[in-house]
Design a protein around this nucleic acid. Structure first.
Length: 180
DNA sequence: TAGTTGATCGTCT
DNA sequence: GACGATCAACTAA
């Protein structure tokens, strides 16, 4: 599912604005069988949405200041999700720039959305978006072209201390907006 | 470019 | 009471 999400367009309605980003980098978190997953120790108030039916958005707050967003992927009770680590801005760059507080003279658009918390800030995703139904109209996915396997690269996941052997990070090779 | 550190707070132990 | 699926600012080289 993580691979499938690459290349999809994520649409976010924000007031009268529409923000669109193409997903270029993701990480899979495999519930109770993955020690790096929030769901590893079972269902709690925080990770509850991870255990919902697939097609919901799991948003969590971390490091005291950042939000990160995941697409829940399995049936009710399983607890697996895909973290969206980076998107390529397709529409609404002016709004993203404002949300991120980037100075007007900043030319490097990579700073807009290359990282899970940057993406959330650019798209205005926060606490209240946790549990959003992706079949609704506020946040949804549009399948565009399929990214061929030859353009997808896999690596170890980033920022974790356990489960580092698994290569469950997937990204589009040579895309400028993949994080580092 | 690589490496270090501070910010900041909800969650779980 | 410790620490995290991060980021930005800083230092050294």
């Amino acid at each position: 599912m993580a691979r499938e999400l690459l290349g999809m367009h994520l649409v976010r309605k924000l007031g009268s604005r529409e923000l669109v980003g193409m997903i270029v980098e993701v990480e899979a978190y495999l519930g109770k069988r993955d020690p790096a997953s929030h769901a590893f120790r079972g269902r709690t108030k925080r990770n509850d949405v991870m255990f919902w039916r697939g097609g919901h958005l799991y948003v969590y707050f971390t490091y005291g200041m950042h939000f990160c967003a995941n697409v829940v992927t399995r049936n009710e009770g399983i607890g697996e999700a895909v973290l969206i680590r980076a998107v390529e801005p397709m529409k609404g760059i002016v709004t993203m720039r404002r949300n991120r507080g980037l100075p007007a003279q900043e030319r490097n658009l990579r700073l807009l959305t290359s990282g899970p918390a940057r993406f959330c800030e650019a798209f205005g995703i926060q606490r209240e978006d946790n549990g959003t139904d992706l079949l609704g109209k506020k946040i949804y996915l549009v399948q565009k072209r399929r990214i061929p396997g030859s353009r997808v690269e896999a690596s170890n996941r980033i920022g974790i201390k356990v489960g580092t052997k698994k290569r469950w990070r997937f990204f589009i090779r040579n895309n400028r907006f993949v994080s580092r």
